[in-house]
Design a protein around this nucleic acid. Structure first.
Length: 530
RNA sequence: GGUGCUAUCGUCUAGUGGCCUAGGACAACGGCCUCUCACGCCGUAAACCCCGGUUCGAGUCCGGGUAGCACUACCA
């Protein structure tokens, strides 16, 4: 029977959404979209002690920013920073599903697949230090304080009396459990190495991940579980749980994704690596109210969501050809689980920058100007219109990876230099330069306001189409006539206008600056450098 | 320690027994372009973890090592 594809992303609200989690969400989304199925979002907040305020909003906002759409469950309301719940399988927060879990805990207890245990955390800790490799399982459970070893009346008395207890899954020993993984194939684990996992704790009246996960995935009719590789070891337990419930024929298919590894050294990428290595590991900046920390985000670092998506998609997945630039639609079209790699991928921040550069170049100058305006306003009180800013960006955008790097490329268009770069001066400001500049002023003063901005298309000596400026026709003959040397004059001129030997083509600069400002800057430089 | 997963350039990866003299991309390096700095273009260097086996033929299949990682909680 072909089931409707329904996948879920089920994060815990324990802090900012890690970039590895974002990739898991992305792959789920791509898979759902490709199959015309549903992408659900469920919040797994069964650990009340690790709850972090704001984390849920953060997760939803991050997915929204990245364009990872949610069909069912919790999501950000369109155009509003407000959470909405959609769908008929709710509630979608596990903390709101207590009664549901009660039913299923009872079912397992009644069918003998689970039992009640009274051992306290302290007692268990003592056991673990006393016996090396202690595991609560078929070999040891009969020596513990639980409903298997105690008279039923006493168990009832303890429970009724409010004694804290947990419900443990009774794993039958010596059984090979087969897990079919869409990425890794058949994985077999013997049940002897599994322990009697805690499924429910009376202390907070909440199930643990394992129980809640299976119950919810079943009830929400999830067809495919696509999650991180760290879950592979517990997959056999989950299979056993489906079996104990009698749900094996509708059990979802599993796909365990390779981990995202630290760029340096070994081990999986962690939240702390970002600050240590100087790049974000979170989609958005996050202010953790619980511990007071602030984590940097891709959005605030100037990344475009399309770039983050493309970059992440290729960390663990690759199409069949050499193509590396994918739009979300193309990813939906071409993504497939069997092209997901099995080995963990080291996180390469440098490549991420390159992706952003590619997407930045695809934006129009006007779009970039809109994004840059807020940054520009913090730098200078600009009288420039958005069209003028767009023009300047058009000249400089191929030099930057991020919108927030634009300022250092365009600053000289907005403010006249007050200092002149030592190194540029040493190399490009010659003894004759002041005289050259004096003469250049005279030459340029004769150019009309109208001619100043003129340029036309022509061909160079190789026959290539090139843009030639009217000012070329004025200045070049003058340089040639006096045999000053183009490089000598132009570099000195550049220093006057920019303050250093850098920047775009000189006539593009004079065009934006205009005649008056250009000449003013040369005069100012002459005063400063004499 | 136990169990599982994994293994191609520095990094992400292509590769499904002959198309591999191992391809692409990022980064690095060199050159070209040029009034500067960039962009761009061209090029260079750079890898099949080791040992066996199967086969006419192995990066590709099998076995064994080794290494890395994950899991081993009343966390997810």
């Amino acid at each position: 029977m072909d089931r409707r594809v329904r996948v879920r992303f089920a994060p815990s609200p324990t802090g900012a959404l890690h970039i590895g989690g974002v990739r898991t969400a992305l792959y789920n989304y791509l898979f759902a979209r490709q199959h015309g199925g549903d992408m659900l979002l469920r919040i797994e907040d069964t650990d009340s002690t690790r709850f972090v305020p704001g984390a849920e909003e953060y997760i939803l906002e991050a997915l929204d920013w990245l364009g990872i759409g949610i069909d069912e469950g919790l999501r950000m309301k369109k155009g509003a920073k407000e959470i909405e719940a959609v769908g008929s399988h709710g509630p979608y927060r596990q903390s709101e599903r207590r009664e549901i879990y009660h039913t299923y805990v009872k079912q397992l207890l009644d069918s003998g697949h689970a039992y009640i245990a009274f051992d306290t955390p302290e007692e268990l800790e003592a056991k673990r230090t006393e016996i090396p490799n202690f595991q609560y399982d078929a070999r040891t459970r009969m020596q513990m304080r639980n409903s298997l070893t105690m008279p039923a009346e006493e168990v009832k008395r303890l429970v009724d009396g409010g004694e804290k207890y947990v419900v443990r899954f009774k794993v039958e020993p010596n059984e090979d459990v087969h897990v079919h993984d869409l990425i890794r194939g058949e994985v077999v684990i013997n049940s002897n190495i599994l322990d009697d996992k805690v499924l429910y704790k009376s202390a907070d009246d909440l199930p643990t991940y394992h129980l809640a996960n299976i119950v919810d995935d079943h009830l929400m009719e999830i067809s495919h579980v696509i999650r991180g590789e760290e879950w592979l070891p517990s997959a056999p337990l989950h299979v056993l749980l489906y079996r104990a419930f009698g749900w094996e024929n509708t059990m979802p298919q599993f796909a365990h994704l390779p981990l995202l590894l630290k760029p340096d050294g070994n081990g999986k990428l962690s939240k702390r690596d970002g600050d240590r290595l100087g790049f974000p590991v979170f989609p958005l900046e996050f202010h953790n109210e619980k511990d007071g920390t602030v984590s940097s985000g891709y959005r605030e670092s100037g990344y475009l969501p399309e770039a983050v998506i493309n970059f992440l998609a290729l960390l663990g997945w690759h199409g069949s050809g050499d193509k590396e630039l994918y739009t979300m639609d193309e990813l939906i079209q071409e993504f497939s689980l069997d092209r997901v790699s099995k080995a963990g991928a080291k996180f390469d921040y440098e490549k991420g920058k390159w992706f952003n550069h590619q997407y930045l170049l695809q934006k129009s100058d006007e779009e970039l100007a809109e994004l840059f305006m807020p940054i520009l306003e913090t730098k200078v009180e600009s009288r420039k219109t958005i069209a003028e800013v767009a023009k300047v960006i058009g000249l400089t955008k191929d030099r930057v990876n991020f919108v927030n790097e634009l300022w250092e490329q365009v600053n000289y268009f907005f403010v006249a230099p007050t200092e002149y770069d030592e190194k540029s001066l040493a190399k490009r400001w010659k003894e004759d330069s002041p005289r050259h500049m004096q003469e250049l002023i005279a030459v340029l003063e004769n150019v009309s306001e109208e001619d100043w901005h003129k340029n036309y298309e022509t061909t160079d000596d190789k026959g290539n189409a090139v843009i030639r400026w009217h000012l070329d026709d004025v200045v070049m003959p003058w340089i040639a006539e006096h045999e000053y040397g183009v490089g000598i004059v132009m570099n000195a001129f550049r220093i006057c206008l920019v303050g250093a030997a850098r920047g775009v083509h000189i006539w593009a600069i004079t065009d934006v600056l205009g005649k008056e400002e250009t000449l003013a800057r040369v005069r100012a430089a002459l005063r400063a450098l004499n």
